[in-house]
């Protein structure tokens, strides 16, 4: 009996220790997050002067990078949202058979493809086309090339989140509309899409949050530009690439600027993420 008692005590202690260990794991994960936010705030905030926010990187500012990121996100969304949502409509409304399963598998694989591979693709795509005489070769470093890369990353994300969003709409809503004699495509466009609009917005925001922070594919396609936007066929600055250039730059002033730029970038990305989750929770795509 005494032996049993001792053993039970040991088991209770082990229970407490293991529970503590899992809590420690949570703390371990929050430590870097806290440190990143803290350092970005402490080191980045002093860099945020009016000149920093209004001048181009030629003058040590990030205004052209912010402008570039906004343009890139805008153009990418313009391409990726319709394509992604239509693919989502296919997956949820039409692709109920084997073909749908294959499309879903491919889309899933695409969401997991390393973004640097997509960067190489966009570069090589333009390059191969230019060999065939379609474009002048310098176009490999251009807004067009960058948008091809970012859209390739964003389309599968939007496709999967849209599919999930559309599936949230109960079948009865579709049937009610169909029973009124409304054609199927109008049912989808007028009944199904509007009733899951907020979930679609979430999916779009998730996609934007993902491409807005992408760096590697931009280095490979948009390269950098110290000036503001000067044409779709020219390289363009962006916040993530600017953070990278400042970070690996030799001077202390540049390093301070790196923290300033990343503070803006982190705030932007976190607020998009938080906004997307505030609308509704989707689990289809995760980074």
């Amino acid at each position: 009996m005494r032996f049993l008692f001792d053993r039970d005590t040991r088991r209770r202690w082990f229970d407490v220790i293991m529970s503590g260990a899992t809590l420690l794991c949570v703390a371990l994960a929050l430590l870097p997050l806290g440190s990143i936010l803290f350092e970005a705030l402490v080191r980045g905030a002093p860099a945020l002067t009016p000149t920093f926010l209004t001048q181009s990187s030629l003058m040590g500012g990030i205004a052209n990078a912010i402008q570039g990121t906004v343009i890139l996100i805008g153009l990418t969304a313009l391409v990726a949202l319709p394509v992604g949502i239509l693919t989502g409509i296919y997956l949820s409304e039409y692709g109920k058979h084997r073909l749908g399963g294959i499309v879903r598998l491919f889309v899933d694989v695409m969401t997991q493809t390393p973004s640097i591979v997509v960067g190489i693709f966009a570069y090589s795509f333009i390059f191969e086309l230019s060999l065939l005489g379609f474009f002048p070769p310098p176009l490999v470093f251009s807004v067009i090339s960058a948008v091809i890369a970012l859209a390739t990353i964003m389309i599968p994300i939007v496709a999967r989140t849209s599919e999930e969003a559309l599936r949230l709409v109960p079948t009865s809503a579709r049937e009610a509309a169909l029973a009124l004699g409304i054609p199927r495509y109008r049912t989808i466009l007028r009944v199904v899409l509007p009733s899951c609009a907020s979930a679609l917005v979430t999916g779009a925001l998730l996609g934007i949050a993902r491409v807005g922070g992408e760096t590697a594919p931009l280095i490979m396609t948009a390269a950098w530009n110290n000036d503001f936007f000067n044409g779709l066929d020219q390289p363009i600055a962006a916040l993530p690439t600017q953070v990278y250039r400042f970070a690996v730059g030799p001077s202390l002033a540049e390093n301070r600027a790196a923290w300033g730029a990343s503070l803006i970038l982190v705030l932007l990305m976190l607020s998009i993420s938080i906004a997307s989750r505030a609308v509704i929770r989707l689990r289809a795509v995760r980074r």
Partner: peptide, 19 residues
């Protein structure tokens, strides 16, 4: 914990270099 995924890779890199 999910917010860890929202921090861009380049910011992790910056944090990696300096912190």
């Amino acid at each position: 914990v999910e917010l860890l995924a929202a921090v861009p890779s380049v910011v992790y890199g910056l944090w990696g270099i300096f912190i």
